[in-house]
Design a protein around this nucleic acid. Structure first.
Length: 273
DNA sequence: AGTGCGACCCGAACGC
DNA sequence: TGCGTTCGGGTCGCAC
């Protein structure tokens, strides 16, 4: 499940492997994956090269001479690098072939991921990029920023943390971990948070994401033939997926509830309402 | 406008 | 064993 740290890791590892190789062919095997015009997508990247890979929130931004390829992995998206003659895997939905006969393959068991081709000048005007909130690592992400954003939010703080227009890049796992770090009950209404609590959320988001990126960066499998990314930040999880186990701080039992339809793990004692 | 929820997918885990 | 059911993960679009 690609969280922001894995997206960042994919970005860093792909950068070492695919930059400045001319694209010879683009094949699309699952058309709904392409949100922009399909024929343009298949044609316009041919002859271009990826010259950089950036990231905004959970969006990967592949830069070519004239375009950007925006790629969202959603839950299951992965990139692999294989030789052209290797058989297409069942879940490989988009394949870029380079002039050295290597291929970049987008694989996604659940077909939830999405891609867009946009003109370079349009990046900042593209809806999915424009609406992203502040990154956890952004110095402008402060308690005061959150207080303003949460002011009229009559929704659980857990739900608010998943809102990409407020903080960009947090997923379900990190939202659970950040709230445990901040000692905030996931059901507490966002508009009721104190400045202190917002400060701890900011601190937690920065610290946890930073650590996750660091761990993701050190635990990449050998990727001579593929880029299956499996970060080891799982080892650092304090509440997520730990239902019924003891809280590492107080020994209470970790609970699992649904908040906004999403699995939410928390310690009822450390995170009182 | 703000909020809530089903839909999108399909493999894994679970229940009988 | 084999079947059916539930769940998850991020985001969008529709309904209220």
């Amino acid at each position: 499940m690609p969280e922001i740290a894995e997206v960042e890791t994919v970005r860093n590892t792909l950068k070492k492997r695919i930059l400045n190789k001319q694209i010879k062919e683009v094949q699309v095997f699952y058309e709904p994956m392409i949100e922009s015009d399909l024929e343009t997508f298949k044609k316009n990247f041919v002859g271009e090269s990826f010259i950089d890979i950036k990231r905004r929130g959970k969006w990967l931004i592949f830069e070519t001479e004239h375009f950007y390829l925006l790629s969202h992995l959603r839950m299951e998206g992965k990139y692999f690098i294989k030789d052209k003659n290797e058989e297409k895997g069942r879940h490989e939905h988009v394949i870029f072939t380079f002039n050295d006969d290597t291929t970049l393959r987008y694989s996604d068991t659940r077909k939830f991921g999405r891609m867009n081709l946009i003109l370079k000048d349009d990046l900042e005007n593209t809806e999915c990029i424009k609406k992203q909130g502040l990154e956890p690592g952004d110095k402008d992400l402060t308690a005061d920023y959150l207080l303003v954003k949460f002011k009229n939010k009559h929704i659980p703080i857990k739900t608010a943390l998943l809102d990409q227009t407020i903080i960009s890049g947090l997923g379900n796992i990190y939202a659970n971990e950040v709230l445990f770090y901040a000692r905030v009950n996931p059901l507490k209404s966002a508009c009721m948070l104190t400045k202190r609590e917002c400060e701890r959320i900011v601190e937690g988001a920065k610290e946890i994401i930073e650590e996750a990126i660091r761990m993701g960066g050190t635990t990449i499998r050998s990727y001579t033939s593929s880029l299956g990314v499996t970060g080891r930040f799982q080892q650092n999880l304090k509440v997520h997926k730990r239902e019924g186990e003891k809280c590492l701080v107080c020994g209470n039992i970790i609970q699992n509830i649904k908040v906004g339809g999403r699995s939410t793990y928390f310690c009822p004692k450390c995170q009182k309402k």
